[in-house]
Amino acid sequence: MTFTFVSRPSVAVGLATMVLLFVCAQCPAQFTPLTGPGSTNLIPQAQLIQPEELVHLLQGTGTGKPLLLQVGSHLLFDEAHIPGSVYAGAGSQPAGLQQLQSMVASFSKTKFIVLYCGCCPWDRCPNLGPAFKQLHDAGFTNVKVLYMANNLGTDWVAKGYPVERSH
């Protein structure tokens, strides 16, 4: 992976957000209104994967299938998720990032991983940026992020793509 995180102002803002998240780990019940942009500006365009492309991958056979991790709301995951995916903790919460770290600890750094959320419109998602950065910083080199412009309902379920429900 050839990008750096400190070369653009928007990325610097993202890093500042990460620092704030770390500080807030000490006060989990505190709430900061999220009225600014989301975290997805941390993710390079080259690391995005489109829904159609992922469906194609999942329908295939062999070793090309990724490890699919949902890094958003657990409740929304229980309502509907992509078959075979695993809930890995909310990327916007320190506890969620710890859960993600534990989940991938035993995998090779070259493991093909796809992160997704779909909680909110893409540019407002608070979870994907921190989750992607977490894996990048841990040395994972084959991580993609599923691009959903609106949310899981509109960009995946309504299109008739495969869905699994926990309840």
């Binding site: 509907a80 909680c119 949310n151 309902g153 509109t154 379920v157």
Partner: peptide
Amino acid sequence: GNLYGGVLGLP
């Protein structure tokens, strides 16, 4: 959520 057709994205 399911009662309201599956609330899969907010708001």
